[in-house]
Amino acid sequence: MGKVGETTLFLDLNALEHNFAYLRSKIAPSTKFLGVVKAFAYGSDMVAIAKKLELLGADYLAVAYVIEGVLLRNAGIKTPILVLHPLASNFEEMIDRCLEPSLYSQNILTQFLEAARAKKQVAYPVHIKFNTGLNRLGFKENEIGFIAERLKTSPEAKVVSVFSHLAASEDPNERAFSLNQIDTFKKCSDVLAQKLGYASIRHMLNTSGIINYASEAQFEMVRSGIGLYGYGNDALIDPNLRPVATLKTIISQIHEIGDGETVGYNRAFKTGGTTKTATLPIGHADGIGRQYGKGKASVLINGKEAPLIGNVCMDMIMVDVTGVDCEEGDKVLVFGPQRSAENFASGAGTISYEILTAISQRVKRIVIDH
């Protein structure tokens, strides 16, 4: 996929379209779809991904922080944008850019209403988040009275959605817990609608939720993040999805190192015989953290595994290419459709989300859409 003369992240928007269609096939045609594009669209290219999702008909987009939503508005994105973790210091800019806040606590709700009143807003769209067991952000069930009382007396805002987040939707062993979360959410949304005098869009399912709980809890909208980028948190689902991002680099230099010599900082790798190594122009400043060193991960060179050796440097990694037919300038695959980010990450005891979102903005991006 593409010519490699430097470390490059290739982004296949055709894969994104495939993933969107697959996830949509799991829900009713009338159910709305929210695409999560936070963290530079899971480490890819937020603007390119958002524009494609807009063309594909996504009903909503979601970001974590206001600064991300501003970036999308500056790029011309018109689709409604939910800000999942707004902070009071950004409320004025949020309103100016027509970004919609998740209100998750009494303090945030009160401060947002004050900001909306100061900006002379009427029925500004807001989203109420309930904490049903993840215990990260969200109102508890016993706070519904407060929410309703404040909103019924505040014409500045109107609830357009009520939502929550499953804690373990990918784990079949936690099905009872997930179903209890869904039941709690139904109660909360029903009571709030009754007290407000109107119903709102409800959404609770993330990617794994869409796969595992569509019959129980798709409500009026679902949300997907990691699934859009090609990962389903399930080995049985992953073949139905296509990774959007492919990270490639090249071999900068090859060394023949004698028996008993060492490689890299702190002499972290010691040869046990004559060893051929390759140095690659990618390091922890590019998102390949030190946890991947010392043989915890490997790359593919001409179809063969080449484990990382020694400590990962800021701008370089060294890999063992003993027995690999390769030359300086050859292409190197870090992750992509042929070898997933989940596979790369698992050796270091982490997940696809971490390696994807860690890819530095200094890494060149090439968008493919044809």
Rank of each mutant, 00 (worst) to 15 (best):
K3V: 15
E6K: 13
E6M: 09
L9M: 13
L11S: 09
A15I: 05
H18S: 14
N19K: 09
L23F: 13
S25I: 05
A28M: 06
A28G: 12
P29G: 08
K32Q: 13
V36F: 01
V36S: 07
K38T: 09
K38R: 01
A39F: 01
F40T: 07
A41V: 03
S44F: 07
D45L: 08
M46R: 08
A62G: 15
I67T: 10
E68I: 03
N74H: 09
I77V: 14
I77D: 02
K78W: 00
I81V: 15
I81P: 08
H85R: 09
H85E: 10
E93K: 14
E93G: 00
C98W: 06
E100C: 09
L103E: 00
L109C: 08
L109R: 09
Q111R: 13
L113I: 15
E114Y: 10
A116P: 04
R117A: 15
K120A: 14
V122T: 11
I128V: 14
I128H: 04
I128E: 01
L134I: 14
L134G: 03
F139A: 10
K140Q: 13
N142Y: 11
I144D: 07
I147K: 01
R150H: 13
P155C: 07
E156F: 03
F163L: 14
S164A: 15
S164Q: 03
N173M: 11
E174A: 15
F177P: 01
N180E: 15
Q181K: 07
K187A: 12
K187F: 13
D190E: 14
K195D: 10
G197V: 09
A199M: 04
S200L: 03
R202S: 04
H203Y: 13
A214H: 13
S215P: 01
Q218R: 11
E220I: 05
M221T: 03
G225A: 11
I226W: 02
G230H: 08
G232A: 09
D234N: 15
L236P: 00
N240Y: 07
A245H: 01
I250V: 15
I251R: 12
I254G: 01
E256I: 14
E261V: 07
G264V: 10
G264R: 09
Y265M: 08
A268W: 06
F269V: 06
G272L: 08
G273C: 00
T274L: 05
T275C: 13
K276C: 03
T277L: 10
T277S: 10
P281I: 02
I282L: 07
G283N: 11
G283T: 09
A285N: 15
G287M: 08
G289E: 08
R290S: 13
K294A: 13
K296Y: 04
N302E: 10
G303Q: 01
E305Q: 08
G310Y: 04
M314E: 14
M316H: 15
I317Y: 08
V319F: 14
V321E: 05
V321R: 02
T322F: 13
C326S: 12
E327R: 14
G329T: 11
D330K: 07
G336D: 02
E342V: 02
E342L: 08
E342A: 15
E342K: 12
E342F: 03
F344L: 08
S346A: 11
G347W: 02
G347Q: 02
I351C: 04
I359W: 03
Q361D: 12
R362P: 00
K364Q: 12
D369S: 11
